[in-house]
Design a protein around this nucleic acid. Structure first.
Lengths: 246, 246
DNA sequence: GTCTATAAGTGGATAGAC
DNA sequence: GTCTATCCACTTATAGAC
């Protein structure tokens, strides 16, 4: 019941080969599903809504996906594929090697900053992860695995940063990892409700800064011209590089 | 649409007077609704489910509540009434006076500890607050108000504690308040997914302790025989009084 | 690969009997 | 105060035409 026997195929048909019509329809459906799940959660959205948004009928949609549950899981997995491929490589292929700690810290802060520009995705994870708390939810196993993995990885990152910064081990890295993960999640709910009142990135930076885990004054850690999309990585809220403390 | 013109009556018919049959049915329905919303969120639960659980038909239920939306709001408001009456009095009656800071800190930690014993309520707030992120959700205004109020109150508490502890104002109380609120929320999702791996109370204590906001070694702050329900306030996970740091 | 048509069921809500 | 009966919109899912 919660073991999840069937994995999603995800056959991109080689790396750069031009996608077939079916593959393009699949992609359109996944885009629509992501957008609508983001807006209203999993339970409140129907296959007809998604199909209509993607420009086909719900019967046509079901030709590509065996059911609503599987569609959700593919949406979630595709997001990880795009969003956290380098920062958390083990999310998709368990055991994959990760970059060095300083780079991962930068990628983590970039992820928070990017989230501040994509309310849809943030809402998707906020809503679905809360729903998936129920053991019977189709994405329960996905999120349970995900959080366990993230806590483990963050614990490693924090421990490495402590070692590098010479902060000693007065603070348990596992504790900080759990707090950091909770902080990032909790900020998202607040931010979705009142975006202007909750500068997510600044609050995360401040948390890490108080622990001495932020590079002293490395301007590269603020703006990383790396993630492909271009655009100026504008912080918007005008937070100082070391957090917002007085 | 989001102004919420009609308030719930909540007429307890004097304070101690024995409730009428209608009032008892209402209460039963609210209990059932709270339990089922906790288990599956708002959208996934039907009025028929709730009515059946409370031992009446869904038409009978609708005699007491004008619709599903109003039922949800009454469930949420009743929880606040019971749970945070003293800690956050302004949640129900804006402008009500609050107890002194040290006592509020203790009440706050007690609230976290109590949550660790009531997964149902935690799940209710986790799921519905995520859903309510959507501006069209019936509880959107409720949660927007709630979070704004909580941030304001927590900012005051933190500032008072800083003054009392003589920690200075190196750390912005508003920042800490936002982080603390996010921490508590985020921990709940993690805890619901994997309770043994996430000692909520210890992680919150640790956060506050690192800021020097916890009373040095006051045993009273750990167990407060105050909240009426009795029961031993057992911590369960065996966390040290000052947090779990090494 | 996508459609129409349809099955079989559940949703919130109302009317009126008792 | 609670019931039965009913309405209508909408759900997932299947069968078979094009």
């Amino acid at each position: 019941m919660s073991t999840g026997n069937g994995r999603a195929p995800y056959r991109p048909g080689a790396e750069g080969a031009r996608p077939s019509k079916g593959e393009r329809t699949r992609a359109r459906v996944l885009d629509s599903a992501a957008e609508l799940f983001s807006r209203s959660g999993f339970n409140a959205v129907s296959l007809r809504d998604i199909a209509a948004h993607a420009g086909l009928t719900h019967a046509g949609l079901l030709h590509h996906f065996p059911g609503k549950d599987r569609l959700l899981l593919e949406v979630l997995e595709r997001r990880d594929l795009i969003d956290a491929r380098e920062l958390f490589p083990g999310l998709l292929r368990p055991g994959s090697p990760a970059p060095e700690p300083a780079r991962r810290l930068r990628l983590l802060l970039e992820l928070v900053a990017r989230n501040s520009r994509t309310p849809g995705l943030v809402a998707l994870y906020a809503k679905v992860s809360a729903e998936a708390t129920d053991p019977d939810h189709p994405a329960h196993a996905y999120f349970a695995r995900r959080y366990r993995y993230l806590r483990t990885e963050l614990t490693g990152i924090v421990a490495d940063l402590q070692r590098a910064a010479g902060t000693g081990d007065a603070v348990d890295p596992g504790v900080v990892a759990g707090q950091l993960l909770a902080l990032m999640d909790g900020l998202q709910t607040q931010w979705l409700l009142e975006p202007e009142a909750v500068p997510m990135e600044a609050l995360v930076r401040d948390f890490l800064d108080r622990l001495g885990l932020l590079p002293t004054d490395d301007p590269e850690a603020t703006a990383g011209p790396e993630t492909g999309d271009g655009a100026g990585t504008e912080s918007g809220d005008g937070a100082e590089a070391g957090g917002v403390s007085r």
